[in-house]
Nucleic acid binder design. Structure first.
Lengths: 217, 217
DNA sequence: TAATATTCGTGATAAAATTCACTTATAGAA
DNA sequence: TTCTATAAGTGAATTTTATCACGAATATTA
């Protein structure tokens, strides 16, 4: 067992943000049938340093073997465990636009344990339509639905104007996490976890980087 | 003019990643008709420290006035300029699934200067269908299209298996930036800028944080 | 079996990012 | 006009993150 975990060192945020990347690469290696890999080789694939990889893993335990490396299967399972992927996570989506539909239809999410139990919208055009094997419900019924069928996660893919209101309903209905796609910093009530994904911010970062490169010519 | 920019200090990555957030908040304040704001007040809205805000801005110049604060309009324009938002950016989208459609239909992107000139797919079901005011073209014609109508940015919203191949076509056709939604680290050729947006990674981070919180009870 | 090459895990060091705390400028009040 | 409060900008200190470099364990070869 790792000394660091014993000492209750808190895991740096930067490390947590890299865990999904480790998971993604190891999954790929597993598909390719690779059995073992060294920190050296794995880190080159990921374009990070091998010491960063080893240091990161050391926050959670010892997963490799000196002189040999890591068994891909073992490390993949370990990181899956750290991320909590053995569990199922139930969720509803609010906002049945393209983003909401993309989430329902992307198989990668259900593979990782996300189970979507309902999708809601306020637009009469969308209500009643099929998304995957779900029927879009009226957002008016969101609170009632969650009372009957509680979920852990609320996914907000509404336009920005609706997002905060929806988030309050979700939080009041007991969701423990919100996956937010709207370009707004949501106010919390209670100790809900909010994970933002701001497409617009990412685009602007791309713009900046394009100009930065230009400036260097 | 700022001493830091004179000294050619390179702007830290962490600062660059916050610029879009500053832009987003200032845009909101502008809509609300707010005229001036102090670093204190703005930083509280953003849940950062005021010294971080001031320090960040100092990499680019001096935008405020002691004893007064910042004029919202001025600071908004300044950050828009830093991000390069006065320009137009042309782009094609490859992958006419829900993500691709979401990008075409989201008005916020065109407001920021993104002009999408074509959308491509390899699925006969999608080819020929309308997305916004674009008609989905066969990805077979992507290279030809780009030869006639070059663009600066390629948006990759294909399934993961197709992403690298598509990226090579885009890079060969002279795009300077790629906005990548596929869960893969794209190999570059040449000095293209790749900006990734990995929805799956964000979801796994949410899972981790949910369990982390649980562990503390 | 002994010798050699790998390679992990980690304490120490370096670099990067954040916060502190102070100086200076100026707005607004008296 | 003078005084006081406010608030930007910034060098220095602190904290966080990343890298280095080495000891210890194990695999592999001779």
């Amino acid at each position: 067992m790792s000394a660091k975990t014993d000492k209750m060192v808190t895991v740096p945020k930067a490390v947590i943000n890299r865990l999904p990347m480790y998971h993604r690469f190891l999954y790929q290696l597993l598909l390719e049938g690779k059995e073992k890999i060294s920190s050296q080789e794995l880190s080159q694939l990921m374009r990070i340093t091998s010491s960063q990889l080893r240091q990161d893993l050391s926050y959670f335990g010892e997963f490799g073997q000196q002189g040999y490396g890591y068994r891909v299967e073992t490390l993949y399972q370990a990181i899956s465990g750290i991320l909590g992927l053995e569990k199922q996570y139930t969720a509803v989506i609010v906002g049945a636009g393209n983003i909401g539909r993309a989430i329902v239809n992307y198989p990668g999410f259900s593979r990782r344990g996300l189970k979507i139990t309902g999708i809601f919208d306020n637009n009469p055009k969308n209500i009643g339509s099929q998304v995957g094997n779900l029927t879009v419900m009226d957002v008016e019924h969101l609170a009632d639905f969650l009372k009957k069928y509680p979920v852990q996660i609320g996914i907000v893919s509404t336009p920005v104007q609706a997002a905060q209101k929806v988030a309050y309903i979700l939080m009041k209905s007991g969701v423990r996490g919100i996956w937010n796609f709207a370009p707004i910093m949501l106010e919390k009530n209670g100790d809900v976890v909010v994970e933002d994904i701001h497409l617009g911010d990412s685009l602007l970062t791309l713009f900046y980087r394009l100009n930065e490169k230009e400036g260097k010519n």
